[in-house]
Design a protein around this nucleic acid. Sequence first.
DNA 1: AATAACATGCATTCAGAATGAATGTTTAGG
DNA 2: CCTAAACATTCATTCTGAATGCATGTTATT
Lengths: 146, 146
Amino acid sequence: MRLTLYSDYSLRVLLYLSHKEETVTITELADFYKISRNHLVKVVHNLGINGFIVTSRGKHGGIRLARPAREITVGEVVRHTEPDFDLLECFNPQTDHCVISSTCSLKGVLFEARSAFINVLDRYTLADVAAPKVQAEIRSIPIIQK
Amino acid sequence: MRLTLYSDYSLRVLLYLSHKEETVTITELADFYKISRNHLVKVVHNLGINGFIVTSRGKHGGIRLARPAREITVGEVVRHTEPDFDLLECFNPQTDHCVISSTCSLKGVLFEARSAFINVLDRYTLADVAAPKVQAEIRSIPIIQK
DNA sequence: AATAACATGCATTCAGAATGAATGTTTAGG
DNA sequence: CCTAAACATTCATTCTGAATGCATGTTATT
């Protein structure tokens, strides 16, 4: 279970913008994070289309947040950057071929789990995340790391 | 954000076994679900190694649950079948290259979301899921389907 | 011994993410 | 009005990992 690098980069861009008032360029971002400029170009483009940032072309162009960091939640961002949240085949009726999906209640359980996941992300804004570090690492992880 | 078919098939196998008392064969499972027998072979093997099922070779061999369905949670299964739960690059210190991960509190937020997800799965057993359908589809989905 | 089952490893295919590259479009400033 | 600096857009390529297929081994019953 993973998110895409695309979502990762999207969040990093917005986080960077949450700290800076002035417009920043894609090149500045790529240099700071030491990541692929090509990939960033698409990430930024998409963030613009979805109204998270304002982009301006030409000399002295660049990008900035379209709304205050306090008004953008992590959940909202991820919903726009992940290709889908189809945990199992049966989540997408178009491509589902499972012979028991009509009577299977596993789907409901995973729906509930997915909602719980997204709900947490909806409770945090970019401002929360951009704030100086308070706590982290302190949580126990109920996951087996192989 | 997806789970693997591998996890999907693992759950389907265990669900099928939750209904049947007798041992069943991989061929029977593949035929019932109309899925790749090759893939199932590995799924079953892994379920055996992880103590969810008992496998027996030879004529009249097959597989059956190693423990009562009531004692196996969905969360426990998924933990053993998913390759990892590394939502972002920074979840794995071995391969993390993010320049801000040491001070970034996004990780904490995603840790919390992941825990919320797994906690739901830990609350349901195979017996719950195998029980005759009660409700499903009724939940609202706070996800944008593109 | 033969047969029916799971075990195991290797090779191959496939999908989709990630990356790279080229060209177009817009805007500011000399 | 021309140039440079920026984002926009499309296409091609690489890469990873999941999914699948296949061949052979091992075990157990009859």
